[in-house]
Design a protein around this nucleic acid. Sequence first.
DNA 1: TTTCCGATTGGCT
DNA 2: GCCAATCGGAAAC
Length: 195
Amino acid sequence: MKKNKIQLLDSAFFNHSTLKVAKNILDKYIITERNGKKCGGRIVEVEAYLGQKDKASHAACGITKRNKLMYGKSGRIYIYYIYGNYNMFNIVCEEEGKPGAILFRAIEPEIGIETMIRRRKKDDVFDLTSGPAKLVQALGINLKDNGKKIPCKDIYIYEDSNKRRMISSGPRVGISKSKNFNYRFFIKNNRFLSK
DNA sequence: TTTCCGATTGGCT
DNA sequence: GCCAATCGGAAAC
């Protein structure tokens, strides 16, 4: 019996330099399964956040209560609350003890679009997951997911066989420090990127 | 304990 | 394009 077995990404995939992982994770699929509803799509835009030299990173000033996951094991989910309204979804990279994480900024919605429309209260597919806080909402991710490892039973990422990698990079969005680092990576010409 | 400000979004000019 | 909303983390005092 041959089943097309899906290869889930695990900590080994994330246990490399954050910049390398950021480039490699583009074009993969991220899925959440919540209340029997499966949602997800292709990862089309991410940003890398590093350690001390990266002044835009939470890890710029050393270890704190909030950012300690960034220093921990790779493949763990790091979620933080910001602007009094939003949660940001990251996955920790680098070997244990060295800080680094990738921020998910946009996915191309494919699976469970009706559920994502309901969660977002918006029916424009280009407004479902085209921003870091938007995709968190659409996928039903919340602070309870902080610290979970990838893969876990309701959040996982896998390789898509149908690759179409054309990667561009540029400055990160919404930061005031270390603006000159081109740590934003995205699939060129994709229609579902953040604004 | 006080103050400052942020890895954003959505609404309004 | 501009800006308010909104609140917790982190640093200053």
